[in-house]
Amino acid sequence: MDITLTINGKSYSQDVEPRLLLIHFVRDVAGLTGTHMGCETSLCGACTVELNGKAIKSCTMFAVQAKGADIVTVEGLASDGKLDPMQEAFWNEHGLQCGFCTPGMIMASKQILDRNPAPTEDEIRHGLEGNVCRCTGYQHIVNAVKAAAAGAGK
């Protein structure tokens, strides 16, 4: 099936099998390997990308369902060598150790602030329920989202 999707502003067209998962399109067709395949069972959130402005798990969607969609991956955040404020906040607050969950964490964290620019700690944790980190114990990730929220208000 011929599909065209836009990823980080660039158009990709490919003849794909309907069973091809969106994450495989992102990683193997578009070659954008920043989006990680973790649990493959829609629990860990490492594969989170933005689809038409909404955070979704790309391991639990067929690429054909995203036909015509506008997708943003972690590679689409920095521009002109300047990190996105959320990436900057994860760096400053040490919101990662091994980094495997980080692309998904950052995409989910951006969704939190898109919908609520001044979230409480509870709201941040509720917004990150779909993302698993096995290193940090989450505290520094929550701190990073708080820092990004505070920075965005300045």
Partner: peptide, 9 residues
């Protein structure tokens, strides 16, 4: 329900 990504889809 579930988590934010699940609720979006």
């Amino acid at each position: 329900i579930g988590d934010v990504q699940v609720r979006n889809m």
